[in-house]
C-alpha cells in the first residue's frame, strides 16, 4: 500500500500529480438515452473527491464505469497513468478498486467475518482446505476483528450476525470490507443515504480515517454539509459531463448547488478540472 500522504491538500494544487484513477471522454448510451456524454474524471492520491449532481445527471453511470459494473461505449480509463479496462466488477477489484453501495450490500443472516470475506474466503492450509474446502474461520475472524479495530469500529464479536447491528455499524462492516481489499481506491455510493444523523457522522469519520491512511475515496453524496466537511475537491456532474471541479474552501454550498443545477457558470479553471 502507498504510504500516508496526508495533508497534501495544498501541495497537490501547486505541482502536477499523476491521478490514481482518471477517465477521459467517457460515453455511455442506453438506446436513445445518453447517460454519460463525454465525461472526464480525476482522482488524486490520498484525497476525498466528492461527486455531486442532480438526479439523472449521470453520476451513477459514471461511478458504475469506475467500479467495472458498466462498460462504456467509448472513452478511456487510466490508473497511475496506465490505460486499464474493466469488463466486470471483478476486473476493477483486481486493480484494487472497492465499492461501498448505498443499500448496505451485506448479507444480514451471515456473521461479520463471513461478510467481510464474502466471495474472497480464506481456506485452511493443507488437505482440509484443498480437498475438503474447509474455511479458515479463525483466521477470517481475527483479520476482520483487527481491521474493525484499525478503523475504530467498536463491535463486540465478529461472530455475531450482521442483522444484530445498527445501520451505522452495518455500513461500518461494508467499509471495513472495502478497506480490507481496496488497495488503491474506495468508491462510496451514497453511503449515508440509508442512515440516521448520528450514524452518518460515524461514516464521515470513517472516510476521513481512510484518507488519513493514504487511500483515496470517491464519495457520491447528496448531503452538502457532509460533502463540505470531508471533501478535498468536489466533482460537479451535470448533463452527463463533468461541469466543474471546485474546492470547498473557494465556494459556498449555495454556489455549488447553483453550479449543479446550471444556474451559475464555473470559472475557466473549475471547468478545466480544478488544479
Amino acid at each position: 500500500m502507498t504510504e500516508t500522504i496526508s495533508g497534501t491538500g495544498t501541495s497537490a494544487a501547486t505541482r502536477p500529480v499523476v491521478p490514481v484513477l482518471e477517465a477521459h471522454g467517457l460515453v455511455k448510451r442506453y438506446g436513445n438515452v445518453t447517460a454519460i456524454n463525454g465525461a472526464d474524471f480525476e482522482l488524486h492520491p490520498a484525497e476525498v473527491l466528492a461527486v455531486i449532481g442532480d438526479n439523472g445527471a449521470g453520476k451513477s453511470s459514471l461511478i458504475k464505469v469506475l467500479a467495472g459494473a458498466v462498460v462504456p461505449d467509448s472513452g478511456e480509463l487510466r490508473m497511475d497513468g496506465q490505460p486499464v479496462s474493466f469488463r466486470t466488477t471483478r476486473d476493477a477489484r483486481a486493480h484494487g478498486i472497492e465499492t461501498v453501495y448505498q443499500d448496505l450490500a451485506v448479507i444480514p443472516a451471515l456473521d461479520i467475518a463471513s461478510n467481510v470475506y464474502l466471495g474472497r474466503e480464506i481456506r485452511r492450509k493443507g488437505f482440509m482446505g484443498s480437498v475438503l474446502r474447509r474455511l479458515d474461520m479463525p483466521a477470517m475472524r481475527k483479520d476482520s476483528a483487527d481491521h474493525l479495530a484499525d478503523l475504530r469500529i467498536g463491535i463486540k464479536s465478529v461472530s455475531q450476525a450482521v442483522e444484530t447491528l445498527s445501520g451505522g455499524q452495518r455500513q461500518g462492516v461494508a467499509v471495513v470490507r472495502s478497506a480490507t481489499f481496496g488497495r488503491r481506491v474506495i468508491i462510496m455510493d451514497e453511503p449515508t443515504a440509508a442512515l440516521g444523523v448520528r450514524e452518518s457522522g460515524q461514516v464521515v469519520d470513517l472516510i476521513k480515517q481512510l484518507r488519513d491512511r493514504g487511500l483515496p475515496v470517491v464519495l457520491i453524496s447528496h448531503d452538502m454539509p457532509h460533502v463540505f466537511e470531508v471533501a478535498d475537491r468536489i466533482h460537479v456532474h451535470r448533463l452527463g459531463q463533468r461541469a466543474a471541479v471546485v474546492r470547498p474552501s473557494e465556494r459556498t454550498m449555495s454556489e455549488v448547488v447553483a453550479l449543479m443545477t446550471g444556474a451559475t457558470e464555473p470559472t475557466e479553471r473549475e471547468r478545466a478540472g480544478g488544479s
Binding site: 475504530r152 469500529i153 463486540k156 447491528l165 445498527s166 455499524q169 448520528r198 460515524q202 480515517q209
Partner: peptide
C-alpha cells in the same frame, strides 16, 4: 476517538 465511543455505545 469519538467514533470509537459512539459505535461502542450503539449495541
Amino acid at each position: 476517538t469519538p467514533t470509537a465511543q459512539r459505535m461502542a455505545e450503539a449495541p
